[in-house]
Structures are given as C-alpha cells and as structure tokens.
C-alpha cells in the first residue's frame, strides 16, 4: 500500500509542471499563436523562482518571480510576433535559445545551493481518504492550483464571452478584426498568460519537484508540453489525461532504472521523448479529430489593415 501511495504521489509531482505549462500554451494556441519558446520560459521560471526563494527565504516570492520571468520573456515574444509580425516559429526558437542561455548565466551562482521545498498543505478531511487523500489532497498549493487553473481554463474557453472571442480569433483573425475585436491585443494577453504558466511550471520544478537549480533542469519538458497540446487536440480535459500519462511514464522510467533491470539508464531517459513522437504520430493520423479542433489560423502572422 505504501509503495502505491508513494508511487502515485510522485506521478502527480511529475505531471504538474507539464500540466501547468501545457495549459498556458493551450490558451496561446487557441488564439492562433504558436509559441515554441515554452522551454525557454520554463527554464527561466525555474532559475528565477529558485533564486528569489533562495535570496528571500520565501518560496511564494519564488513562485511570483517564476511567473514574472516567464511573462517577461513572453512579452518579448509578443512584441516581436504581434508588433513586428515576425515568423512565429523562428521567434519562438530564438526565445528558447535566449531563455536557456540567460538562465545558465543567471543561475551560475545558484548551483549547488540547497533550496527549500514548498510546504505541503493538506486539505482537512479530504486528505484522510485512504490512498486518494495523500496523493491528491495533501500536496503543496501549486498542485491544487494546477487543478484549479484547469477548471478555470475550461470554463473560460467554453462558457465565457471572452473565451469565445479568443476561439474566434484563433479560427479567423480577419473576420474577428472586421467585427471590431482587437486581435493583436487579445493574442498578446494570451501570450503573457502562456508565459506566466510556463514560468510557473518551471518554478514548480525548482521549488517543489527537486528544490535545487541545475542547468537545463527542464530537460525538454517545454517541448513535451507543446506536444501535449497537440495530443489533447486543444481540449483542456484531454490535456489532463496527457500530462498525467507522461508523468506516469517518467516515474515508471525511474523505477525501472532503480529496479536494476539491466536496461541502460539512457534508454529509460529517452522514453519520454520517444513517447512524444509516438503520441504525435497517433494524433496526426486522426486527421478528422485534429481538423475539428485545431485553431485554423495557428502560426500565421496577422497584420490588421486600416
């Protein structure tokens, strides 16, 4: 029983950063923008979050710093893609390169310093339910936040007018513009939200997952988050399933390594990446599913005519 409980606890921990970053990117892509800079924003969130928590002694300041770092980088992306109509793919890549480089620079003095993990915040009563209790309801607040944000994003997209406007802009920015909606402004806000979420996801890594800073500690999670959005066909509910699937696989990989099955550790480490490829292929084969939900204008620059 204890083993299962411990196992599931780590699965939730592994899945949360993916869920957070992917939720943010989902909103961004729903507005018609492709931001490949998630990895860069996540790693900046990780280093800034860790640094702020270390220097101030308060992990919540770390959380704030992580969010702001992600948003700052996203703002840069937004200015270029919305203001200068630059190619979104290239700009996103530039963002990742910059983010990785900058994080290495900023984080040099943090290497080897111990951090303090976020305290768990058990919910009374619920956390006493056998198995589910400790796994889901005796976690640090960011886990709860991830579930809360999932619900919020779902509600926003499908039950609110601003969410409808966002989806419309992702479908046809020219029509939205003709109807008088501020396409670039909405997209910029979506980009900022995505940046904040990516930063938060990265911050979770250095503040709760493994409370330390190591260069490149995101190890491609940002890219996996991007793949998750496709896998979820841009639906928040499916995103939850996808994030947890990957979390599960990552943890299984660790346990396989520890069990000394004779499988090389590098192979187990490569499982998430291989799985991402498999998942992408599966989804792209289901063309109808993709076509039904993918925002039609994704990746295309929009320049309003006046």
């Amino acid at each position: 029983m204890d083993f299962l409980e411990a196992f599931l606890i780590t699965v939730v921990t592994a899945s949360t950063p993916l869920l957070l970053a992917a939720l943010g990117e989902l909103i961004v892509e729903r507005s018609g923008v492709l931001n490949l800079g998630v990895e860069g924003m996540m790693v900046m969130g990780a280093v800034c979050g860790f640094g702020a928590a270390l220097l101030s002694g308060n992990p919540w300041l770390g959380v704030l710093a992580a969010i702001l770092a992600g948003m700052a980088l996203a703002a840069l992306f937004g200015v270029l893609t919305m203001g200068f109509a630059t190619n979104q793919v290239a700009t996103g890549l530039a963002l990742t390169l910059l983010g990785i480089g900058l994080s290495g620079l900023v984080g040099e003095s943090f290497i080897g310093k111990p951090g303090r993990a976020m305290q768990a915040l058990p919910i009374p009563l619920l956390s006493e339910i056998p198995l589910i209790g400790p796994v889901l309801f005796a976690r640090d607040p960011l886990v709860y936040l991830s579930f809360g944000l999932l619900a919020l994003v779902s509600w926003f997209l499908f039950r609110s007018k601003p969410g409808l406007i966002l989806r419309a802009i992702g479908d046809n920015p020219e029509s939205a513009h003709m109807l008088g909606y501020p396409v670039l402004r909405v997209r910029f806000l979506a980009i900022l939200f995505g940046g904040g979420m990516a930063g938060l996801g990265g911050g979770y890594l250095s503040l709760a997952y493994t409370p330390l800073w190591a260069e490149g500690m995101t190890a491609g999670r940002g890219w996996i988050a991007l793949a998750l959005v496709v896998f979820a066909t841009w639906l928040p509910s499916r995103l939850l399933a996808g994030a947890y699937l990957f979390g599960l696989m990552t943890i299984l990989g660790f346990h396989a390594q520890a069990a000394g099955l004779g499988i090389p550790s590098q192979f187990l480490s490569s499982l998430p990446y291989l799985a991402t490829i498999v998942v992408l292929v599966i989804i792209s084969r289901r063309k109808a599913l993709v076509a039904a939900h993918s925002p039609a204008s994704i990746g295309r620059s929009f320049v309003p005519t006046h």
Binding site: K161, L164, A168, N172, S175, L179, A292, H293
Partner: peptide, 13 residues
C-alpha cells in the same frame, strides 16, 4: 466574417 469552427449562435453572438 464567419468562424467556421463555431456554431451559428456563437457566430451571431
């Protein structure tokens, strides 16, 4: 100025 992926009512809204 229509949005293909949305419903008639959503388009009108």
């Amino acid at each position: 100025s229509l949005f293909e992926a949305l419903t008639v009512a959503e388009n009108i809204a």
